[in-house]
């Protein structure tokens, strides 16, 4: 009896799949992944030289991130209770992650001074990444779409430049300008090798900015591109079966992207901590 019913259900599912394959698809639609990441100006503002200050999709996402930050800060500021609720417990867990796992584990000195910046980077990037996984109506023709501020190279580049500037500011303030620059190469090395090491270090300082920004940007861009391709394939194939299959796959990709969003924020913050900590406590 039970076996029989199982067979009937299986047969129905198979029949459904076959019908889905045979059914002609929905309306044909153009789909271009690049369009998902294009930033057309929404509000035109004057540009200063090459710097076009127009408000586009990315700026709107930055504002949304700032808005979420403000809402979180408002609720935290209003309702800190001795016995935490769910929201407060989640916030405290993130806060302790930033304090103990990121700042506490990679910095030796200057933890108090640099904690706000590194934890701020962590929260900002995390919230920005997570906001990017919520469908918002800023795609073509105000339709729902996925986009993240951190999936734009210039946003991540700005964040990496902040870390770059603060790294050298911390190093100069802590060690003095001359000693800081001289300590880029170990004093014990022989003369020519020492200059070579110094040049390599100077180049690596620049490449840190590149790797820091490109890592975050490429991760978010790749994740969103894969999500967009999975959603767009349903339009391209014009077939209900393929659409159902790819929607199932996109759920898995989406879950993985949640993980990536978190990990990338963690890595960005922890590398900022490593760089600033390295500038504070130079090896001699």
């Amino acid at each position: 009896m039970k076996r029989g019913r199982l067979f009937v259900i299986l047969a129905l599912v198979l029949l459904g799949v076959v019908v889905l394959f045979l059914l002609p698809g929905g309306e044909s639609a153009e789909f271009d992944v690049v369009e998902e990441f294009a930033t057309h100006p929404l509000i035109h503002l004057p540009s200063i030289g090459p710097v076009d200050l127009s408000v586009n999709k990315t700026v709107v996402y930055l504002w949304i991130t700032f808005g979420v930050v403000c809402v979180l800060a408002f609720f935290i500021n209003r309702g800190v209770k001795p016995v935490p609720g769910r929201f407060q417990f989640a916030m405290e867990t993130l806060y302790e992650l930033a304090r103990d796992s990121i700042v506490g584990s990679v910095m030796k000195s200057g933890r108090e001074t640099w904690f706000p910046y590194i934890a701020g980077v962590f929260f900002f990037v995390l919230i920005s990444n997570l906001v990017g996984l919520v469908p918002l109506p800023f795609a073509e023709h105000w339709s729902l779409g996925f986009y993240a501020a951190t999936a734009n190279l210039y946003v991540t580049l700005s964040l990496a430049l902040c870390t770059f500037v603060f790294t050298h500011y911390a190093g100069v303030r802590n060690n003095g300008p001359v000693a800081y620059v001289r300590n880029w190469a170990p004093a014990s090395a022989p003369p020519v090798l020492r200059q070579l090491i110094w040049v390599i270090h100077a180049v690596s300082e620049v490449f840190r900015v590149v790797s820091l920004s490109v890592r975050l940007f490429a991760n978010m861009l790749a994740g969103h591109a894969i999500l967009a391709v999975f959603f767009g394939m349903a339009l391209l194939f014009q077939n209900y079966a393929a659409a159902a299959l790819l929607q199932g796959g996109s759920v898995l990709i989406y879950l993985f992207e949640l993980f990536v969003a978190f990990i990338q924020a963690f890595i960005f913050a922890i590398l900022s901590g490593v760089y600033i900590g390295g500038a504070l406590d130079q090896e001699h």
Binding site: T39, S47, V51, T58, N152, Y154, L157, S158, L159
Partner: peptide, 13 residues
């Protein structure tokens, strides 16, 4: 190239 995003990012960040 989208240099206008840098001031916006620095401001919101």
């Amino acid at each position: 190239p989208n240099w206008g995003l840098i001031p916006w990012t620095l401001l919101t960040f």
